[in-house]
Amino acid sequence: MAKKVEVSVTVNGKAYSAEVEPRMLLVHFLRETLNLTGTHIGCDTSQCGACTVMVNGEAVKSCTMLAVQAAGCQVTTVEGLGEVGNLHPIQQSFWEKHGLQCGFCTPGVMIASIGLLQQNPNPSEEEIRDALEGVICRCTGYQFIVEAVKHAAQLMAVDETETGNALQIGEGR
């Protein structure tokens, strides 16, 4: 049995420390060790993006990262985006624009979308569709996801003029 290693990581603003097998995938660490089951696993080959989370502010696939690689990092999962009554603009938009059906891919799709909006706050339809390359949704045909991302961009632009801080996620949101 390979020696376990200590992993300290901040998830959704909260510090965690745990001994894990080095081979433990970040997605299993989040789901099994921390009981943050909002992040899902939809494939084995890093294609579907259901496991997408933010690591140090960048959208990454947590099925293709070891928990040990996240040591010392700030991780944000869907649970850290916002909660009912205080939703993140992306959550609000997915709800309003019917951007989800079964909801299984949705946490990953929302976080990948935030990843896009951080790089490109006002994306065109084509840019949104290209940015969704790393997620697969079997239910929606993507159209309402595209509209949700567009809508979120607008909400976040308004948010930014009001607070100057549209993209902050995790703590205090």
Partner: peptide
Amino acid sequence: IGDLQVRNR
């Protein structure tokens, strides 16, 4: 390369 998430890592 790949997709947005892959390019980040």
